[in-house]
Amino acid sequence: MGKASIIVFSGDLDKALAALTVATGAAASGMDVTMFFTFWGLNVIKKGGAWKGEGFMGKMFNLMARGGDAIGPSRLNMLGMGRWLMKRMMKKKNVKLPQEMIADARELGVTFLACEMSMRVMGVRKEDLIPVDDVVGVATYVQEASKADIALFI
C-alpha cells in the first residue's frame, strides 16, 4: 500500500492540522506512515502545561515555546486572539483539533518519531512529550524517507 514520511518542522496550529490530516488520511488508506517531529514541530507533541525543559535555560525556553493546546496559527495569531478564534471556528465547523487528530493517528498506527538533536537544542526531554515510538537521528529519517512514496516537509 506504500509508505509516507512527514517531517513536522512547524509548530503552528494550521500546519500541524495539515500534517495530521495527510498522516491520518494516508494511514486510513492503508499506508505505512511515519511522522518526524523536529524543532518547532516538537510543540505539537508536547504535553500541556508550561513548566517543562532541561535545566534553567530549557525551562525558560519552553515557557516561551509552549506546546499542546497552546500552539497558534502561522498568521493572524495576534497574541492568542487568532488562536482562540481559529479553534472556535474549527469546533463550529466540526474540524478536529490537533490533539484529537493525534489520537486518531495513533489508533490508525502512525509512527511518531522525535528528533534527538532538536530536543537537545531546545532543552526538551522525552518526558515533556506525549509518548512517542522513538527518539531518533537523521539516519533513521533517511532510511524511512528513502523508501517513501510520499515525503513531505511541513
Partner: peptide, 11 residues
C-alpha cells in the same frame, strides 16, 4: 469534514 469520514471508514 475531511479527513474524518475516511478515518471512520478505515476504522
Amino acid at each position: 469534514v475531511c479527513p474524518q469520514p475516511i478515518v471512520e471508514l478505515a476504522k
